[in-house]
């Protein structure tokens, strides 16, 4: 297995809030792993989804496109999305692509979970 390939973890931080821990490289190739984590969370009743980018090592434009698709799925299912753990570099990419207008970016997991509730 490619060590740089994205690895997704799923954990719960409340009855309806799930954190997806994103590690490694986020490219279009990561879509099956992210989709699987998302579907698992949705199946188990997550209304709030928090993306943890603390382990993000690399992202290309295919990865950003994948996040847009995730956003559409979450919006369709009336789930709120927030993110934390983005380094300054990746925050700027979210601003450049204007993804920050749709996904609330927070400084900590606690604030991201709270933001996804509002």
């Amino acid at each position: 297995m490619d060590e740089r390939a994205a690895r997704m973890g799923l954990r719960w931080v409340g009855d309806d809030a799930a954190v997806i821990d994103i590690n490694g490289d986020v490219t279009a190739a990561a879509e099956p792993a992210l989709t699987s984590a998302y579907e698992d969370a949705a199946k188990r009743g997550a209304r709030r989804l928090v993306l943890n980018f603390g382990g993000l090592e690399y992202m290309n434009s295919g990865g950003i496109g994948m996040l847009v698709t995730l956003l559409v799925h979450a919006s369709r299912n009336r789930q709120k999305l927030a993110a934390f753990g983005l380094s300054r570099h990746y925050r700027e990419i979210f601003e450049l692509t204007r993804l920050d207008e749709a996904i609330t970016i927070c400084d900590s997991e606690e604030s991201a979970v709270a933001a996804a509730a509002s």
Partner: peptide, 9 residues
């Protein structure tokens, strides 16, 4: 700027 908590290693 505060370093996001998730990036601390």
């Amino acid at each position: 700027m505060t370093e996001p908590s998730g990036t601390r290693r």
